[in-house]
């Protein structure tokens, strides 16, 4: 792509809605070709971080570079999967139409999607196993199918960097596995994917990098170095303390894949 070392460079990013900051002085450097989980409690600013990087929210301070240049010049390199609940799924349109919206950036003003855009959309739908649903009205989709539709829309953007806001939220196990496989495929193609993720237990399994955030940056880096008890406690406050205190001497959560289910549930509540 370019000689720049980082896919994403965020410096001193601060966002405030009213008087209290939602994001405070965030620094984040993301190399190309990694899967990064963005982890933190509710209200930690995970969605806000994505939206600020994408320019959907105007930050109070700070800057974001995509491959060394401002986002506005690098839009074509970035794909976005918003939260599934952010749109009205009763909107009168079909799955194929939604996926083709991923081509709108490439198309530009006034141009309508053509046959090649349709074919790219169908290809993307095939990748997420939804090609049979192309003509389906979107209100008839299950939660997992809605999520796959959104992923397909991001795939046709053919980006280098993907931002995904809770792609695993409310999907069944099959869809979750399919999404993970897709993420790994993207990484293999040298792309970086940043995912807002809630299930701490699967972080070490699905991701190679993690970004722990609670308004401020807690830690960022390879999972094995930053996804520690200490960092999790700092991210989630005292609430997460009890999850590793029940007889498991292991200092990291990911070091204990056989952790009992209750611990996992506690994690989910804490998040």
């Amino acid at each position: 792509m370019t000689d720049t070392k980082y896919a994403i460079e965020v410096t001193d990013l601060t966002v405030a809605y009213q008087e209290k900051p939602v994001l405070w002085d965030i620094d984040l450097h993301v190399p190309p070709g990694i899967l990064m989980a963005i982890v933190g409690p509710n209200g930690a600013g995970k969605t806000t971080l994505i939206k600020a990087i994408l320019g959907l929210i105007k930050p109070v301070a700070g800057q974001t570079l995509i491959y060394g240049k401002p986002y506005a010049e690098q839009r074509r390199l970035v794909g976005y999967v918003p939260q599934r609940g952010s749109v009205d799924w009763d909107f009168p349109t079909s799955v194929l139409d939604v996926v083709m919206m991923g081509r709108y950036g490439e198309l530009g003003w006034f141009k309508r999607p053509r046959r090649e855009d349709r074919e790219l959309a169908l290809e993307a739908l095939a990748k997420v196993g939804m090609v049979d649903f192309a003509g389906r009205q979107i209100s008839q989709l299950s939660g997992g199918q809605q999520q796959r539709t959104f992923l397909a829309r991001a795939l046709v953007q053919d980006a280098q960097i993907y931002f995904m806001d809770e792609p695993f939220q409310g999907v069944d196990a099959t869809t979750e596995r399919a999404i993970v496989a897709l993420l790994k495929e993207l990484r293999a193609a040298g792309k970086s994917v940043l995912v807002v993720h809630h299930d701490l237990q699967t972080v070490p399994e699905y991701f190679d990098w993690a970004f722990l955030i609670n308004v401020s940056r807690i830690a960022a880096g390879p999972v094995e170095t930053v996804f520690t008890d200490e960092n999790l406690r700092r991210t989630y406050g005292g609430r997460v303390g009890f999850l590793t205190g029940n007889g498991h001497g292991d200092s990291t959560v990911h070091g204990d894949p056989a952790a009992p289910k209750p611990a996992g549930e506690a994690l989910e509540w804490a998040s």
Binding site: K51, L54, L56, V78, Y80, P82, S86, F91, M101, Y104
Partner: peptide
């Protein structure tokens, strides 16, 4: 009408 944020992210 369908997805304003996604539209913004595309640059519209």
């Amino acid at each position: 009408s369908f997805d304003r944020d996604f539209g913004s992210s595309l640059g519209y």
